[in-house]
Amino acid sequence: MIALDHLTKRYGRFVALDDVSLELGDSGVTALLGPNGAGKSTLFGIVGRLLGPDAGTVTVDGLDVARAQSAELARTLAVLRQDAHVTARLTVMDLVEFGRFPHSRGRLTEEDRQHIERALGYLELGDLRDRFLDELSGGQRQRAFIAMVLAQDTKYVLLDEPLNNLDLRHMADMMKLIRRLADDLGKAVIVVLHDVNFAARYADRIVALRDGRVVADAGVAEFMTPHVLQSVYGAHVDVREVDGTPVALYYS
């Protein structure tokens, strides 16, 4: 369980997170929604120990993120930031091997190699393993990073806007993949999304942030009502059901 306890973060006078208490990662896919500047990336930054909070604590399975050994946390929780890119010239294989760093500090064992092969196979990157990252398409590169996270073999996986820079088909593929990470591999995936309809179709639970506060936290059916959406986006949004999935019509 990832437990956020009275978390507050300010940038100067701007309050990015305002006394947020939340439990994440119980199971399945949790989508984190909210307008720009709502505090989603700040929340990920603190959980991923890239930022320190001004107040409050985050614990992952009882480990205090601010105090625990960085390597120990990296074996429990993997974070993929948005627009992750690398200046060094690496192959897909190199990148995926780095996923094992928290376990073996760079000296790969037989077990590490199995994890790497499994991750490559799962993301269908076997044929691309010797290609350099800068020779891949955006979707392929995104998959290579997910493979690294998968090789990390953690219980929790945090993905920050994994749909960025993907075209429609790859967006759907990515969401199906995220679904499979939860269903087949039993991972608790927490994913920041922009489009409420992707969340409604693929997530189990939706948490919405606005102005640094949690304004809604519910299952899909409960979340996808005009009343809740109004409170999140501050505008009236119609909801229709299409083939059993609620769809928000925010275009009007």
Partner: peptide, 18 residues
């Protein structure tokens, strides 16, 4: 070996437990 991970950038390196 840690330097190799640092070459991935701070965010990724921290994520990998550095």
């Amino acid at each position: 070996r840690t330097l190799d991970v640092l070459a991935l950038g701070r965010e990724t390196a921290v994520g990998l437990g550095v």
